[in-house]
Every structure is written in structure tokens, then in C-alpha cells.
Amino acid sequence: MSAKPKVAFFSFTGCEGCQLAVLELEPVLLDILGAVDIVSFREAMTEHSEDYEIAFVEGSISTPHDVEEVQHIRQRAGLVVAIGACACSGGLNALKNRRGMDDVLQTVYGSSGSWFETIPARPVSAVVPVDLELPGCPMDGNEFVWAVKSLLRGEMPKLPQIPVCVECRLKGNVCVLAHKGKHCQGPITIAGCGAICPSHGGHCVGCRGYLAHPERDAHMEILQEHGLTVDEVRAQYSLFNTYSEMAREAAS
């Protein structure tokens, strides 16, 4: 890779919070700008170039037009990096997938629904090959910097397949699943956010997606002991992970 790789940011269906997470990296933003050449970034600049090596893609793919555009990006970019829950797992947008698309259009646009086209929301990887996924709602800024540094060294970063619980315990947190009756999904969710939710009075809702080998049955059993029904547990898993949950259901 050349000394200053050309980088572009693209946004599909989402809140653009992940692009904001990049802009919020103020202390190191100048260093990043010094190390890469950003040629397209809707949240921060008006110019746009079609010449880029790394494409950071935010948002889920939820229209036929999105599909074409992301295919176009894939053809031009050497590396496609999906950033954020929407791009990596379909995210919250996939909640609509359990309803018919006509119904969804009707709800959002009323009688003008027929003017729009929509398809079930899906992660970028469901449409084109993705080289790297940086999950989370929003994406974790520190992890983004870490990944950029690896890419600059010519290495493909590899996210450790360890649960959020590891980061949570290393902080010395009191476990909200074991001690406070909260329905924390930390044990099955990929670490990398610094266990930010349980560290600040909340609990993990799985926004970073699930481990490749989650102890899902055991986790479900624990949540059932906490008084949830199987359907209620599934509803919780579906908050950020409807797309993979539906794929599971279809396969079983």
C-alpha cells in the first residue's frame, strides 16, 4: 500500500453516527488525516472522488439502488471495510424484515408508499465480499483507529473473538447479569467496545453482533431463569441482530 492510501467513506441506510464517531476522534483526527488521503466523506466535505483504495461503508443495504451502489464501490475499492452495526449485521434497520415490505412502506410513507422501493435490510457482506467489519452502534472510535493503524502497516486487523464480559471484568465491574437481574448479552457479544454499556449502568444489548461460537443455549437458559420466555429472549436477540436471527430460524 502506498504511503498515503486514498480513503473514502460511504453511507447507506443508517444514522451516519459512525461517520460522526470518526469526526469525534478529535485528538487523533489530525494524525489520521496526515496518514491517509480522504477523498470522499459526506459528513465532513463536499468534494467527492471515484479514486480510492479503502472504502469505509456505513449503513445497511435496504434499497435496490443501495445494492447497485455498493457493488460499484466494491469494484473500485481494494479494501471494503464495513463500519457500524447497520453495515456489519443489518442493525436496527433489519427490525423491519419481519414485516412485509409493502406494510413497511405504508407505515412510513402512507399513501405515497408506492413511490419508493425497499428490500429487507441486510449487512454489506450479504451483497458484496467485505474485507473487514468494525461493528457496534456506533462503531468504536478507538477500534477504528486501531484498524486504520493495522491497515497502514499492511496487516489485516483481526478482532479477538472474546465476549464483552472480558472487557467488563477487566474493569472490575459488578456483573449486572449475575448480580442485578439485567438481561445482559455480554457473554455472547463480541468485545471491543470496552463494555461501555454495563460500565455505565446499562447492559449489553448485542450491538456488536454475536461471537462466531456463542454459548447461545446456555445464555438463553440463564435469561429464562431470570423470568423471560423463549420468545422474549429471542426478541431481545433481535434488537440488533434480526438479520442473523432470521437466518438462524430459516436454517433450523
Binding site: 487523533v28 489520521i32 493503524k149 472474546i162 465476549p163 457473554p187 446456555a218
Partner: peptide, 26 residues
């Protein structure tokens, strides 16, 4: 019922295993 969360290792006063990694400046 184990969820493989690793808590039992991470809170243990005698556990001593570690992972090594490098952090490179920008």
C-alpha cells in the same frame, strides 16, 4: 449452563495467564 464468559478466570486471584499484543502509534 456455562456461557464461556471467562469471568471465573478473570476474577481469580491465582489465575495468571495473559495475552500479548502490540499497539503501534499512528
Amino acid at each position: 449452563k456455562c456461557v464461556s464468559c471467562g469471568a471465573c478466570n478473570l476474577v481469580c486471584p491465582t489465575c495468571n495467564c495473559f495475552d500479548v499484543y502490540d499497539e503501534v502509534a499512528l
